[in-house]
């Protein structure tokens, strides 16, 4: 077992993640236009880039007595933790950071979102933002345990917490085939942790934008980029966990990984424009009464098969 950090990878990774995140944003812009019944000219895909440029130059709005330190810290944590999470995802065969506890590492990076989102909501000293922050904590209470069990189930099937070994264990049969519940739960959690689509109530328009309410200019850009980056990182992680990693005929393994990642990411983005928003209190019960028992049974089945 070789643990270690690929230095060149650590330099390239944030930019790669940014690129995949931008792709997701472009796709979302295109799907959004289509969903609104507008024409979708090719230049729609540049919309996120234009928006980013606008946010970079626009002047920031101020709130009264913000806790600027915590506010910025919370916003910045999103992208940083997304990079940390993506570091253990094997791009093809090798991740940037090989660790024998990669699965738990990903989980730990994800839990930092609890702090990040609450701080983003708190820092602006605005009611709407604070409501959004509290909503995210409630949502996190709902998705966290099913998510942990989904990760554990995949690790259990491989008998290792090393993401590379989890991917390698699917040589004969992808985990999605005999752990479909875990795969679905992981995707639900991926949507919920990026407060995206059906789980976007923490940034809901019913609370004037929730955690995003008072964010403007570059602060808003940082949070939005972090959100897309997490969507991308979670999609990237689902491939080695459930979709056989870089396995596939003819093409090199990193290309297969990328293709599968983009497919999952496209599905996650598509969901946003198809499904209505689920209220956090409703999702709470769904998570604890439906998802949790389902994933526990899934873990039990996998344990029995492994034994």
């Amino acid at each position: 077992m070789t643990d270690g950090l690929a230095l060149w990878g650590a330099v390239v990774l944030p930019f790669g993640l940014l690129l995949v995140a931008t792709t997701a944003a472009s796709l979302s812009a295109a799907l959004g236009s289509a969903a609104a019944g507008r024409a979708v000219p090719v230049r729609t895909v540049l919309q996120p880039v234009q928006e980013a440029a606008r946010l970079l130059v626009v002047r920031r709005r101020r709130t009264q007595h913000p806790d600027a330190l915590l506010w910025r810290l919370g916003g910045g944590t999103l992208f940083v933790t997304a990079v940390l999470a993506a570091a253990v995802v094997p791009i093809g065969d090798a991740p940037v950071l090989r660790s024998e506890v990669g699965v738990v590492w990903f989980n730990a990076a994800e839990t930092l979102l609890w702090a990040a989102l609450w701080l983003t909501g708190w820092g602006g000293n605005s009611v709407a933002g604070l409501i959004g922050g509290y909503r995210f904590l409630a949502q996190a209470l709902a998705y966290e345990l099913p998510m942990m069990l989904a990760l554990i189930t995949a690790a259990l099937g491989a008998g290792s917490l090393d993401v590379v070994q989890v991917a390698a264990a699917q040589e004969d049969l992808w985990f999605v085939v005999w752990m479909p519940v875990a795969f679905v739960v992981f995707l639900v959690a991926a949507l919920a942790l990026s407060f995206w689509g059906p789980f976007s109530q923490p940034a809901g328009s019913d609370a004037a934008g929730g955690v995003l309410a008072e964010l403007s200019g570059v602060d808003r850009l940082v949070v939005l980029v972090g959100r897309y980056a997490w969507l991308a990182a979670a999609a990237g992680m689902s491939v080695p966990l459930f979709l056989g990693g870089g396995a596939g005929p003819l093409l090199p393994s990193w290309l297969w990984w990328l293709a599968k990642t983009l497919a999952v990411l496209a599905a996650l983005v598509w969901v946003r424009w198809r499904w209505p928003v689920v209220r956090v209190d409703r999702f709470e019960e769904i998570a604890w009464v439906v998802l949790l028992p389902a994933i526990v049974v899934q873990a039990l089945v996998v344990s029995l098969v492994v034994i």
């Binding site: 738990v104 730990a108 839990t111 930092l112 609890w114 702090a115 996190a140 966290e144």
Partner: peptide
């Protein structure tokens, strides 16, 4: 594991 537990706990 400490990162995971403590973050959730503090939040």
């Amino acid at each position: 594991l400490t990162v995971l537990m403590m973050t959730v706990e503090m939040a």
